[in-house]
Design a protein around this nucleic acid. Structure first.
Lengths: 339, 339
DNA sequence: CTGAAAGCGCTTACAG
DNA sequence: CTGAAAGCGCTTACAG
């Protein structure tokens, strides 16, 4: 391997000067810089990042920890974060936590071990005190799955407000017999905790808030997070006898499964029942029927995340911020009554 | 930060002994090991990976470079690879190349710079000689987007055979007026190169192979890789006047866009036209109609990839292997004629 | 603008 | 089974 020392010897300068010519940290005369760069090119020199990291204590790498990459929502979110950090001059590493406590602890451990400069984590398994403690060891931004807390930078989704808007839309379209898919109950929400964390509970709360005073029927079904789980929820609702006339699903992924299972049982969307999802993943536009969904401001979420992490890295003691991004309700065929 | 030296001083042993107690590389007496581990625990010592890497020249990290994470196929593939490498005791880093030459060169560069022990790359932009040259700098396994070549380990999809099976199914179902979506032509395939690389061309070739002797009409449409691109292809076909009675799409993602755009123009699947995709992504089961698709043996692909990379890391001079995994054709509603 | 020396925190020979 | 010394390839003070 070609080292900085080789380049220095070949160019007849010191290793320091090579370093300075490459990093620009200290001024180097134009002639020397040209000589160094030409020698670097000719010898095919590549800086050794392990050595640089050891010396600097920084790596220029940010970790992104998400429950899984095999998800409509998280794959897109990861993609957007990678692009945004890339624009900010930071390389990114994506890790999967499998939505487990252990996986999330591992992400924090890896952040120290591999000397990530910072970590973005969609935390589902760890609770607030744990995150607060861990966040002292590495600059971190927590993504919107926890309730508000003020000891760590936090960018969250408009979970409650978005779910309220979705539920209101169902009422406005005339639904009087609602179902919530993705949470086990519409009452005593605070007593239930799910492997998927607080986001689902907050969306359920939004649903319950609107349903509460509306004098309509409401029930709930829960089976997990996948399309297959959504299908199971729909079958569960049908097995209980009555078909609701409006369904709010806490994610689009669940909604896809719900719509499919309803079709398998001869129940049509939107003819027999209206359906709204959450996340507005790209697929929502392409399904038949296309899916009405709550579209969180993903650009805002990503931009704020990059900003906050950069600030936290630069100023470890900065005052923690708590940001909730906006949303739009995008209406499509699944809530459009046929004429 | 607590260093190995701190632990050694506290435990009254040498740094070497701490290292040996931790790595197990050399035998340490039981009593000493217990003392060291207890001291490590008490001081909260964490090994510094940068220093270890610098010394060892290895990191235990494997890079995975895919065109994008925002894709039905690549997000699932990345997920599976992460799990498989995790089982093999290797951490993984996922990078996006944006399907560009530059992005792929960067993945190789990062592999050296960040001292990945190995790289898995779905290469689309680089050609064979470039990959062959780069593969001398880092252990690499190339994923199924290139034609066969024997200078680098290579795991490929059953592109030709799978596409042939899909096209044969359309003929068996009575189609006589076919369209290929995802490649610009059905003739002179070798003269066309796409940003998406050779996989699309090989699938087009499979289509052309079957159509060739069958005495049926065939045309092609190409716009890119996304669902929106698939929709554009369908609109393009419709704009040319005649509606085909069978469509083979080189990916499921394109097929979703095709089916949606056809529906927008009142053309029904499978009533008016049959559609087959490729990849068998999870969504294929949940769309309405559910999508018939070529299902490559993803488990086999992932397992072989992990095996080959592990072997290449252990034995850099090993004879390169070229593996093509199998497939199943999964029939669903999109090719089932209504009674 | 340029350089010689020291050291980041480990692990690899070399000894015993 | 254990240790003192050297060095992985850089960059940070300290000098000039």
């Amino acid at each position: 391997m070609v080292t900085m020392r080789d380049v220095a010897a070949e160019a007849g300068v010191s290793a320091m000067t090579v370093s300075n010519a490459l990093t620009g940290r200290r001024p180097v005369s134009d002639a020397t810089r040209r000589l160094v760069l030409e020698t670097v090119e000719r010898l095919g020199y590549q800086v050794n990042v392990a050595a640089r990291s050891l010396r600097q204590g920084r790596t220029g790498v940010v970790g992104i920890a998400v429950p899984t990459l095999d998800s409509h929502y998280y794959s897109r979110l990861s993609h957007r974060l990678v692009l945004a950090f890339s624009r900010a001059g930071l390389a990114t590493v994506v890790e999967e936590t499998r939505a487990s406590r252990e996986g999330e602890l591992a992400a924090f451990r890896d952040s120290r071990l591999n000397a990530y400069d910072g970590l973005v984590i969609a935390a589902l398994g760890l609770n607030e005190p744990e995150i607060d403690a861990l966040s002292r060891e590495v600059p971190v931004v927590v993504l919107g799955e926890q309730e508000l807390h003020r000891t760590v930078d936090h960018v969250s989704m408009p979970n409650v407000a978005g779910a309220e808007a979705a539920t209101r839309l169902l009422l406005e379209r005339g639904c009087r017999d609602l179902a919530l898919v993705g949470f086990p109950t519409v009452d005593h929400l605070e007593e239930v905790s799910l492997p998927e964390g607080a986001a689902f509970a907050l969306r359920a709360r939004g649903f319950a808030n609107v349903v509460g005073g509306a004098g309509v029927r409401a029930r709930a079904a829960y089976a997990g997070v996948t399309q297959a789980d959504g299908a199971r929820c729909a079958r569960d609702l049908l097995a209980r006898g009555e078909v609701p006339d409006g369904i709010f699903c806490v994610t689009d992924t669940l909604a896809f499964g719900v719509v499919r299972a309803l079709a398998d049982h001869g129940v049509r969307v939107p003819d027999d029942v209206l359906v709204v999802g959450f996340d507005d993943v790209e697929d929502a536009q392409f399904h038949i029927p296309s899916l009405t969904s709550v579209a969180p401001d993903l650009d805002g979420l990503v931009d704020r995340t990059v900003d906050l992490l950069a600030r936290r890295i630069a100023t470890p003691a900065a005052e923690p911020q708590d940001v909730t991004v906006g949303y739009r309700l995008v209406e499509r065929e699944s809530t459009t009554r046929p004429r």
